[in-house]
Amino acid sequence: MLEINSTINESRNFNNLLMEEKTPILKLNLRGKINNNDFTSNVGKILGVILPVEVGSIVSKGYLSIITTGPNEWIIISNSKENNDYQLENVLFETISKNNLGAVTNITDQFTIFSLVGSGALEILSKSSPFNFDTLPNNFSAQTLLNNIDITIVKKDNENIDLLVRRSFSNHLWCWLNDSARFL
């Protein structure tokens, strides 16, 4: 078996903040027209959820979370290492892509996910992100910049946040997070 090399693979504990890279998990990008009933009903059947429409909104079902990242675009994230296989990708690809209802693309390694837990989670983001987190409800996501790097923030609550960052930027961002966390 090939050795997995995720970018960070470590956990750091700071004053009011625990940061770690989440174990790489399945991520699929889903695109399709929300007003296309064939698309939404097929996706709904496979995932067992009604696709959310509002950009930033998140729905979860079982081991899956679906984040609306744009009009007609979603990221499907597996929350479980055990279900980190090609099965879901294959089913969705065969049903959606192959039938020209939309597009399903595996982007598992496109993003690294950092977990920030603690009262310093929002504080550290405010050091370099212009986003107004007051406007971001719990269990919602937002796409913004952190230290000039594109990120997607998944806010579970004020003290539990996931950051999705493109893999190539992840080490730089991790270094920046570690540096900034010193001054919390």
């Binding site: 990008n29 695109r31 399709g32 020209n100 939309g102 597009a103 693309t105 595996n106 982007i107 598992t108 390694d109 496109q110 993003f111 493109r166 893999r167 190539s168």
Partner: peptide, 10 residues
Amino acid sequence: KVFLTSVTDH
């Protein structure tokens, strides 16, 4: 009817 997805980092 075309959909684009960046996979540069994937």
